[in-house]
Nucleic acid binder design. Structure first.
Lengths: 179, 179
DNA sequence: GGGATCATGTAATTGGTTACATGATTGT
DNA sequence: ACAATCATGTAACCAATTACATGATCCC
């Protein structure tokens, strides 16, 4: 019963062998945009994946008191990952604090609500500009089958999300009236 | 240190007094679209809110072995909620299984990926149609200050989200080619 | 009689965050 | 000398899910 975090790790490892430290770095950016984990969680999960025979490692003597371990996918790990990819994702409950605040916004001062949404809008516009710059660095969409397709397709999703959020913020501001 | 779940409960209670059971029902739909909790979590959180003096209850002898407790906001609870609403939401890490699968989709069979996205697209279109029917039942946007504004604004957010997701699914299908 | 709904709670487990702990190498 | 980076791990805690437990009333 490999967890989603386990498959997140396998997904990164499928692009190249890495240490736990490298995995933690990768799961801040770009994987962190859709799945994050701290290093403590990653080391623990790697033990489980090792026990399940989905990954292996080669140890070199590294900096610090313990060995440096470079992890790689096993044949079984690759097979498990490939199988998991096309299984329908199990939906997890949404938890969105801004939307919850919006639900209760009728009892707050409109001016303060307006300010909150103005800040949110600015943040979304900044992130969208960042993503757009990143998108431009791809020379158009890579072919499915190319590992870079994964990066590009998730980036496109992020761009759509930021646009949708920004639009909703603008709609909210219009509802609240000019400040 | 009231948790977000605590404020979710206060947000529902602000619209009318309720039992823990009623709160659990409310947090499936419509609040469940942006914050869910099971009844066990809710009963536990109500104890904390009670301890913090943000809610109170009146007990009647109800069905089952224990008293039925109708909870209500205290003055302090209303104040805490009103304050929380306009504080900037602390951002929590994104965790999206479909996007993670997309990241690893380059090593799967394109036809299976295509099928997964076709299913997702259908689900989003169904939900969007549902939301649109619900939106039509409002006679246009209520004024901010009206509790119904909270329902309407969150519904609008949900509609935008479903549209964005559906569009991304269609883009993915186009990338993967006709099946 | 039987199942759904109403109504409360506890316990066990999993998933995730934060803090603690250690220590070499590289760059300023 | 000092800070940052590389590198591993454990422990404590909080949030959330699932399972366990009880029992009355209402509708078929």
């Amino acid at each position: 019963m490999t967890s989603t975090l386990g498959f997140a790790i396998l997904s990164v490892l499928a692009r190249g062998d890495r240490t736990g430290y490298d995995l933690a770095a990768a799961m801040r950016r770009p994987v962190g945009y859709f799945w994050t984990a701290g290093h403590s969680q990653i080391h623990a999960e790697l033990q489980k994946l090792l026990g399940a025979g989905l990954v292996g490692f080669e140890a070199e003597h590294g900096p610090g008191p313990r060995d440096r371990k470079v992890y790689h996918l096993t044949a079984e790990g690759t097979r498990a990952l490939r199988e998991w990819v096309t299984e329908p994702p199990r939906e997890r409950p949404e938890r969105d604090e801004l939307v919850l605040k919006t639900y209760a916004s009728w009892l707050a001062e409109p001016e303060l609500v307006r300010r909150m949404f103005a800040d949110q809008l600015a943040a979304h516009e900044t992130r969208l500009a960042e993503y757009e710059r990143h998108e431009a660095s791809f020379g158009g969409p890579p072919a499915p089958g190319d590992p870079r397709f994964g990066n590009y397709a998730t980036l496109r999703c992020g761009m759509g999300y930021e646009r949708h959020r920004a639009e909703w913020c603008r709609w909210m501001l219009a509802q609240l009236g000019e400040g």
